[in-house]
Simulated scan of single mutants.
Amino acid sequence: MKQYGAEFLGTFWLVLGGCGSAVLAASVPAVGIGYLGVSLAFGLSVLTMAYAIGPISGAHLNPAVSIGVWVGGRLPTRQLLPYILAQVLGGLVAGGVLFLIASGKAGFDVSAGFATNGYGEHSPGGYSLWAAFICEVVLTGVFVLIILGATSVRAATEFAPLAIGLALTLIHLISIPVTNTSVNPARSTAVAFYVGDWAMSQLWLFWLAPILGAVAGALVYRLIAGGRD
């Protein structure tokens, strides 16, 4: 239960820190943090929680990562579903907290975005379904590969949180214009739930693509690692 509680809290922090920066601070006139600031916020949220709860649960904070770690042979099957449930619940609670904060400002309209992921007319840059799918699969795959490599027994694991946090920052710098960056089904669900409507109808992509990417990334890592990890 300590591991699942850690995943709940860690995912709560990821969503509140990352999505919170996008909703509350990205476009503030004159002092808004923009795409770069949001990218750093997601990276920093993972980095800080990886140091805080990594020794307890591994700090997956992401159903796709948990699936990738499972495929990589580092997570028992009996723990996979509880990890995912804890992450989704942590994200949903963070989304609720963010909704309460954001709705305290006059003119707030949750349907305008709320840091949701989307494609087509709901992509920040107007990218198509297939562009969004490819982007999410490839970036999640590389992310999982980096995680497995950085946390390998052959790596300098004390620096793993830094490598993982910077990787997530880079991923956001690449893909915010395409999908608003998911690579994390719990993060996507956490805000889509409160928007409803189109956000929920497009949510399937931000479960399917990251999971496929995670499985591919884990298999590639096992191939290049030679099964020795």
Rank of each mutant, 00 (worst) to 15 (best):
G196I: 02
P185W: 08
V178R: 05
S152F: 10
V88C: 15
G217Y: 13
L44H: 00
W204L: 11
V138R: 05
C19I: 04
A132T: 10
A64N: 06
N117A: 05
T157D: 04
F159R: 13
D109F: 03
L16W: 12
V138Y: 07
A6F: 13
M1Y: 11
S39D: 07
G34N: 08
V191N: 09
H172L: 11
G95E: 03
A115I: 02
V191M: 06
W70L: 12
C19A: 15
G54K: 03
L148E: 07
S21V: 04
I164D: 06
Q79C: 00
L168T: 13
G149V: 02
R228D: 06
L162G: 06
A102I: 08
D197M: 03
A52N: 00
S57E: 13
L139G: 13
L61Y: 08
V178E: 01
I101W: 02
L162W: 06
F42T: 02
A59F: 11
F133A: 14
M1R: 07
P55H: 09
V69D: 02
A167D: 05
G95P: 14
L80P: 03
N117I: 08
S21C: 15
A64D: 08
L9W: 03
G54P: 03
V215T: 09
R154L: 12
L16E: 00
G91M: 00
G226V: 09
A186Y: 11
I33R: 03
G113C: 08
A216Q: 05
T157M: 10
I67M: 15
G141R: 09
S175C: 10
S39W: 06
G107N: 05
Y221M: 11
A30W: 00
N62R: 13
L219H: 03
Y119P: 00
L9Q: 03
Q202H: 08
I174W: 15
G165S: 07
K105N: 11
V178H: 04
H60M: 07
Y51S: 06
Y194Q: 11
W207M: 05
T189A: 15
L14K: 01
F8P: 01
K2P: 02
V31M: 05
L162F: 11
P63G: 11
F206D: 04
A214S: 08
N62F: 15
E158S: 09
F12D: 02
G149K: 01
G90Q: 03
A214F: 04
P29G: 11
A26V: 09
G196C: 04
S201A: 14
C19M: 08
V191F: 08
V15M: 10
S57L: 01
V138L: 15
S182D: 12
I134M: 14
P177H: 10
A86Q: 01
A209I: 05
I134T: 14
D197S: 12
A167I: 03
M200E: 14
S123V: 05
L61D: 02
R78S: 00
L223D: 02
Q202W: 09
A214I: 10
V93M: 10
G165C: 03
Y51E: 04
V88M: 13
V144R: 00
D197P: 01
W70M: 11
I33V: 15
L75M: 15
G58H: 05
